[in-house]
Each structure stands twice: as structure tokens, then as C-alpha cells.
């Protein structure tokens, strides 16, 4: 029972695994961030992720069309956009209660992905998945190279999306409009901004990114599809948006913290870390990331002040 692995080796491996595991959370949470900044709480992320996870793997597998993974990704984005459109129609046009509509969309995604899975695939789909790409030069860097630059393309994309999201929110007309309609849609409307159009676009973008999140979970991270494989990750993504106080950087920090805590508890199990000679019960360790998230949420009081004031509130002209 002796081992030659050093703490540095473990840290490098854990860091790399954390980045990969954070990828689906990051896509879904950034998408949800746009929807929420525009004033729409979309609890359908879980359902959209499932549909994205199924459709992408299905089209690239031999049970489907043996398509290139890029096609799988595109299909997931399209499905996400359609489900985002459904959410936007129900919450913006019909002005239905957003929490309930979102749960409905999640139930729909769970049911529909299960149904399609059974009818079209009849058993676990193995897709092979997306290969890791070593970025030239950078991947040869000591330590950093194997942590940051030996990932699949979706992980690179997810992390690139963070500064891009910040830039879009702060430096584009659309981003300004998203922030405005989420805070004070009456004001935006009176300035000639089309509130419904902005919310539709933000929710649909959120759907696209949730679809990508699902695809990254199935195609890239696991390489398989199984019923309900998201296992609540969509809801964690929604929680991460609150956790991150609607800021892309802090959402990223949250996704990393959650994934790192989860990876840490696995390492504690794997390396059989003992406290005073006694093994720590796995059930206790598995709770760690969730407990940590709750603890941080309790202390992150700033969050309340940044919440989009019009979140969950449908907009109707002349209401004030």
C-alpha cells in the first residue's frame, strides 16, 4: 500500500478534473444568468440540459446518424433554442408564473428525453465523445500546461465565455438592454426598448447554452447517455447564478468551488484519508459541496442587493 504520487501530482490532476467537471455548470449557469438578468427565472434548465444531452449523443452515435460531434453540438443548441423559445413564450407572452413554467419545462425535458431514449435508442448510448485537445505550446508548460491546456474544446469554450459574457453585458447595446429590462422594464419600454424581444432573446440564449451544457455532460464529460443523467445539475446551475450574485466571474468562481469541493471529497475517499485512524463515511463527504455552497450563500449577503429587481415579474405596459 505504498504510493509514489506526490501532493503536487494530485493537485494537478484534481485541478484538471475540476475544470472539466465545472464545464456543464458553467455553460448552464451563464445561460441562466442572461435569462435572469433580463428578468426571467428559468427553472427549465434541467430539462433543457437533458434534451441537449440526449439529442447530441444520439445523433453522433451509431444508433443515430454517426454524425460529427460538431453536428451533435449544433443539434443540442437548436433543441436548447427551441425549449428556450417555449419558456419565453410561456413566461413572456402568456405571462405565466415563471417558477411553475420552468418546473413544467423540466418535467417535459425529463419525460421527453426518456421517451425518445427508449423509443430511439432502447439502451445506454455510448458515443465515444469529444477528445481532449492539447493547446499547442501552452500544454507543454510545466504544471499549468497539464491543468489548463489539456482539456476538451468545450471546456476551453466555457471558460472563454466568462469574459465574453461580461463584455456582452457591459459593452453591447443588447447587454445594456438586458440589464435594463431585468431591473426596470417600464423604464426600458419608455425608452423605446422592446422588452419582450430582449427577454425572448435572453431566454433563448439561455436555452442554447443549457443545451450546450447538456451536450458537454453527455458527449464530452461522460461519453454516454443514460436516463435523467443530469441528476439535478440544472438546478445547481440556477443556484450558482444566485451564488454568483449575477456576475459571470463570480458564477465561474461558484462553479469552480462546487466542482473542486466535489473532486476534493472524491480524493478523500480515493486516498482513504482518515481522521484519527477512522475512515470518514462517504455519505458525509458526498454532502460536502452542497454544504459548502449553502454556507457561502449564507455569508454572501451582497447577492440580495444585486438581484434583478424585475426577476420573475412579467411586464405589461401601463401597469404602474
Amino acid at each position: 500500500m505504498e504510493s509514489s504520487r506526490t501532493l503536487l501530482d494530485i493537485l494537478i490532476a484534481a485541478s484538471g478534473l475540476t475544470l472539466a467537471a465545472a464545464t456543464p455548470f458553467l455553460f448552464a449557469a451563464l445561460g441562466e444568468l442572461f435569462a435572469q438578468r433580463s428578468g426571467v427565472l428559468n427553472l427549465g434548465v434541467e430539462g433543457i440540459m437533458l434534451m441537449g444531452a440526449f439529442t447530441s449523443v444520439f445523433v453522433i452515435s451509431d444508433k443515430g446518424f454517426n454524425a460529427h460531434p460538431a453536428v451533435g453540438l449544433l443539434v443540442a443548441m437548436l433543441v436548447g433554442a427551441l425549449m428556450g423559445l417555449m419558456m419565453a413564450f410561456v413566461s413572456v407572452t402568456l405571462q405565466a408564473e415563471q417558477g411553475i413554467s420552468g418546473i413544467g419545462l423540466t418535467l417535459f425535458g425529463q419525460g421527453m428525453s426518456t421517451l425518445l431514449f427508449r423509443v430511439l435508442a432502447a439502451g445506454v448510448i455510448v458515443a465515444g465523445g469529444v477528445e481532449k485537445i492539447d493547446l499547442p505550446v501552452l500544454s507543454n508548460l510545466p504544471v499549468l500546461g497539464s491543468i489548463f491546456f489539456h482539456q476538451d474544446i468545450l471546456t476551453y469554450a466555457a471558460f472563454a465565455l466568462v469574459p465574453i459574457s461580461v463584455w456582452v453585458l457591459n459593452r453591447t447595446t443588447w447587454g445594456l438592454q438586458v440589464r435594463a429590462v431585468g431591473q426596470n422594464p417600464q423604464a426600458a419600454d419608455s425608452m423605446g426598448v422592446n422588452v419582450a424581444r430582449v427577454r425572448y432573446s435572453a431566454v433563448i440564449l439561455g436555452g442554447v447554452l443549457a443545451g450546450v451544457a447538456g451536450a458537454s455532460l453527455s458527449m464530452a464529460l461522460t461519453g454516454v447517455f443514460q436516463e435523467n443523467m443530469t441528476a439535478g445539475r440544472g438546478f445547481i446551475a440556477v443556484a450558482l447564478v444566485y451564488f454568483g450574485g449575477w456576475s459571470p466571474w463570480k458564477v465561474m468562481a461558484g462553479a469552480l468551488l462546487f466542482s473542486a469541493a466535489n473532486n476534493l471529497q472524491i480524493w478523500v475517499q480515493v486516498l482513504d484519508v482518515r481522521v484519527a485512524g477512522a475512515a470518514i463515511p462517504p455519505n458525509l463527504l458526498i454532502m460536502l459541496p452542497y454544504v459548502l455552497t449553502i454556507v457561502v450563500l449564507i455569508f454572501a449577503r451582497e447577492r440580495q442587493r444585486r438581484e434583478p429587481a424585475a426577476l420573475t415579474k412579467p411586464f405589461e405596459r401601463g401597469e404602474n
Binding site: 478534473l17 456543464p24 461522460t222 441528476a231 472524491i266 480524493w267 480515493v270 486516498l271
Partner: peptide
Amino acid sequence: LVAYTGSFSDVAAGTDVANT
């Protein structure tokens, strides 16, 4: 090396443990 996922159905958690 022994580690549990805490779930019978969470495929990605199984992947996480396997990768670790």
C-alpha cells in the same frame, strides 16, 4: 482505491469518480 458516488443513477458522478 474505493469511492462512492452516493447515487445509483448519477452517471456523471460515476465518471467523476472513475476519472479520479
